[in-house]
Amino acid sequence: MPPSHSAPGRTAARVMLQIALLLALACLPWFAEKYYVQFVARILIMGILAMSLDLLLGYTGLVSFGHAAFYGVAAYSLAMLTPAYQAAWFWTSFPLAVLGAAAAGLAIGFFVVRTHGIYFIMVTLAFAQMLFFLFHDTRIAGGNDGIYIDVRPDTTILGWKPFDLERYDQVYLLVLVLFALVWMFLRILLRSRFGHVLVGIRVNEHRMRSLGFETFRYKLACFTIAAALAGIAGYLSALQFGVVNPEFMGWHQSAAVMMMVILGGMGTLIGPVLGASAWMLLELGFQSLPVAGSIDLGKHWQLWMGAFIVLTALLLPSGLLGAWSALWRRLHHQTPALDADDPVAKP
């Protein structure tokens, strides 16, 4: 986007708002109970996972139905790097887990990004299910029951402990910092040459090739980066829950992240985060529904969730964010137009 488009005042205001939001979130542990702090941490972790999937789904047009595989690989990496009744070292286990997810992304991506459309969906799902059954049916890491992380990773460097991961509030702050870093990383990435190539591939891959871009290379790099970012989410999840099981990489998990991205709004960064928040809040809300007569409404929360997804898909085809922009335009009497300010906003 040429400079003439972005009003510097508006951009500055947006950045200030983001910083203010982050600071407000950072204060949460001082006035919220443990349960809610951990709940927001889970939302942020799902936000990282959803943003990483949106890099594939919304920006590059790669509909990956196996994204939880990389989330699971990193989670299992932490579990397997943690010795029994002892702590892993954060400064090695974290990079190794993320690298493990990236390596899995590179290896699987090498095969899957050659395919297109429905075949891409199928092979990503197939690879993820292969990993799922690898952990489910063998005794590699506790099999079906999963594996416990008895002691949280230790962060001591030369006798100095910058933060204590046995404390839920410090885990929360670590999650928040990594969330902010992933957000910033993606913002920068999407404005770079690479980010523009990704959008070009989504819009018209054939034309990108005839312009001289070997799109395979870029799609593979994108798939690997998305896997690494999903790995960050997986590591944090394992760290917070203290247990990892095959469900981490199951297709339910892949589908849930995909719904978060679609629910929030594809092709934006804030969309997936909104979607993850809405998803988690709805899950919580529906699960705590009361017993009405002979029916336990809360027990059947998945039914209400399903109904909600159907309604959203019918009524808000461009997600919560799309609905919000439409409302905003109506309130400000702006004509709906293609957003020239942000080419990636329109999938």
Binding site: P3, I188, S192, R193, F194
Partner: peptide, 15 residues
């Protein structure tokens, strides 16, 4: 951009 070397450049804004 296709003529300006590799586009595996992740940080500098195209702008």
């Amino acid at each position: 951009q296709s003529r300006a070397g590799s586009s595996l450049r992740f940080f500098r804004p195209v702008l």
